[in-house]
């Protein structure tokens, strides 16, 4: 799997407002922390609206993170909603040999041939588990599980623990369990295309 270059591994999340890109970014940061790494998670510093394309970021490092500027050349891009790929250039700045991970049933059309592409049908996983918020399938937690497959230094166990920690107080044990299960299933089903 990919190595941490310059001691820093950077992730950009694309989704729509309400899909939990920021929460996903925070779960991966916490998972990295549980692995003994340093981390940052932050939203794109803009006004967010439900349904509009949003961006969030995660930084992971073996050393304390002093960088506070935005992420311009991520190592990994995670797309929560494939429909935004027609309006947002999700691979913009993605490093050569970087990784694109998309919630998709089908192989997405990608212009670049210098990156690795992984897909997982996170929406179907949430529908199977009846993991819905306001009637909409939850896609951020399964995508954190899928990310465990492609992330350096951050394993599935830490991601599952971070998912658990994120939801146990606010959602209670049953819903939390569903989120953990969704992350696990996505980890098992993610595949390179």
């Amino acid at each position: 799997m990919a190595r941490i270059s310059n001691g820093l591994y950077e992730i950009r999340w694309h989704g729509r407002g309400g899909q939990g890109a920021v929460t996903g970014a925070q779960i991966l940061a916490e998972a990295a922390f549980l692995e003994g790494l340093w981390c940052q998670a932050f939203p794109y510093f803009g006004a967010e609206r439900r349904g509009a394309p949003v961006t969030a970021y995660t930084r992971i490092s073996k050393k304390p993170i002093l960088v506070h500027s935005a992420i311009y050349s991520p190592d990994l891009v995670i797309v929560l909603d494939p429909s935004i790929m027609s309006i947002v250039d999700v691979t913009k700045g993605l490093k050569e040999n970087g990784t694109l991970l998309v919630n998709s049933r089908e192989i997405p059309k990608i212009e670049r041939d210098d990156i690795r592409v992984f897909i997982v049908d996170a929406t179907s996983i949430s529908l199977e588990l009846d993991l819905l918020v306001a009637g909409i399938p939850v896609v951020n937690t399964p995508m954190t599980g899928a990310a465990a497959k492609v992330l350096p230094l951050v394993g599935l166990e830490s991601v599952l623990e971070a998912v658990h920690n994120k939801f146990i107080d606010s959602l209670g044990p049953e819903k939390t369990k569903l989120n953990v299960e969704a992350a696990k299933r996505a980890y098992d089903r993610v595949r390179e295309v």
């Binding site: 340093w38 932050f42 993170i65």
Partner: peptide
């Protein structure tokens, strides 16, 4: 503390 850069950024 700097808006968003710290206020809305999670770190340990």
């Amino acid at each position: 503390l700097d808006a968003f850069i710290l206020s809305h950024t999670s770190m340990p």
